[in-house]
Design a protein around this nucleic acid. Structure first.
Lengths: 259, 259
DNA sequence: TCTTCCTCAT
DNA sequence: ATGAGGAAGA
């Protein structure tokens, strides 16, 4: 059986919020190392990969591998019932029909409990190769979100160009064009505002802003975001969570004339 | 060419916000004395006149007269990309296709740059006669905004009556009637709260509240607003900016039975 | 598409 | 503390 207690129901809430527009139904794969999720969006352009390691829970218990096929719309409805400081416990049997969510408000003596019916979902398990990326940019998540939102006003796609000098997000649209350039900088006092670039080779790729804006819903999960790029390989947008857990999005570049 | 650097991108942002609901497209007329704008609203009831003198910029350079025909919706989208403390530089060639806006974050490892395509706009240059007004009221901009908003709840139009005693804003509507009276008063300690009346002849005129509320979006630009009235002449609502720059709105009075 | 909630700015 | 704007949900 699975029993996983999360001090902050909010974490799961935010995670689900960030991916529910990309994926409707998906498996939460539970085993003794934690809870993982991998799914492609309907158009197979984007991929979500989440890992909540067992250390993120306290306690965490999962005797054998369980796949919880959950409709994220249903999960969202239930999670909306959680106060932000509630403690959430996920429970499931070994061959479950339902997953059970218990919300405890630490202060009060209020306990809410929900069961969500599970579904069978074809497990298209996607091996994601560990790629060595040509460029990796670490920057404030809020700033990345801001840039994507600003450029969305002008165009459907953004070109991300990374050189030793810095990173440049640019786009062209009907009303004009826009670009935002960031230089690498480090300030020990404000590590959350640092822009760090790790480059082995300059890259320039174009992506759909709609998806990037969508990914940015995860900004609340982490102060910083890591963008990893290589030519002709999907962009990796990673939000690191505590305990080495993460929420990752992959997005295939637009090619050639599509730019 | 034009090159104009504005320490506070916010100023332009507020100006454009205040007029974009009245005017969709208009020319920014640039010459060595600054940047000016004049436009009537679609229904030709109201007129906007803005002047940003060259002294408001640092540096300011404009070799010859350039008319930048800009869609204010597009400009709004781009200005939304400015952080509030960004420095804005406007640039344009002598016979430009685009106007270029550069936002520098003062901390500035971030530079955003936008080009907005220009349009040809028929220059209906409106000579605005310098009128001697029968009454001029200077009052806190926030108070004028409040009055207009409050009275909007009751009626579509407001009558502004100015005598030696003071100024009275009043309206009648279906649910009842309302009025706000202000007496002239001066307090050296709080000059921003003064109400000053300069009267050569009592006047009473009626105006559309919808437009006045719209003008009041400019309240953020100045602590005080100046209302100038004369019989059968458009009301002048003026927000003074630093360096003798200004944002002025003119509104034709409602006549006779329309009240 | 419209309404409501939440967040940001003043 | 209040008001405005943007985002999310119905």
């Amino acid at each position: 059986m699975l029993e996983a207690r999360l001090e902050q129901a909010n974490l799961l809430k935010k995670v689900v919020d960030a991916i529910k527009d990309l994926v409707q139904d998906c498996n939460f794969d539970c085993n003794d190392s934690g809870i993982a999720l991998q799914a492609m969006d309907n158009s197979h352009v984007a991929l979500v990969s989440m890992l909540l390691r067992s250390e993120a829970f306290n306690p965490f218990r999962c005797d054998r591998n369980i796949a919880l096929g959950i409709n994220l719309g249903s999960l969202t409805k239930v999670l909306r019932a959680a106060q932000s400081d509630d403690i959430l416990t996920l429970k499931a049997e070994d061959a479950p029909d339902v997953v059970n969510l218990v919300f405890e408000n630490s202060a009060s003596d209020r306990i809410s409990e929900y069961d969500i019916k599970l579904m069978d979902i074809d497990q298209e398990h996607l091996g994601i190769p560990e790629t060595e990326y040509a460029a990796t940019i670490t920057m404030p998540a809020a700033e990345f979100q801001r840039i994507c939102r600003d450029l969305t006003a002008l165009s459907e796609s953004v070109s991300i160009e990374c050189t030793k000098e810095g990173v440049k997000f640019s786009c062209q649209g009907d009303i004009g064009s826009g670009s935002v350039q960031l230089r690498q900088h480090t300030n020990v006092d404000k590590p959350g505002e640092n822009v760090e670039i790790d480059l082995s080779e300059p890259v320039s790729l174009t992506f759909s802003l709609k998806y990037l804006v969508n990914f940015c819903k995860a900004s609340g999960l982490s102060d910083t975001v890591k963008l990893s790029l290589s030519s002709e390989v999907p962009l990796l947008v990673e939000y690191g969570l505590s305990n080495n857990s993460y929420l990752r999005f992959y997005l295939a570049p637009k090619i050639g004339d599509e730019e």
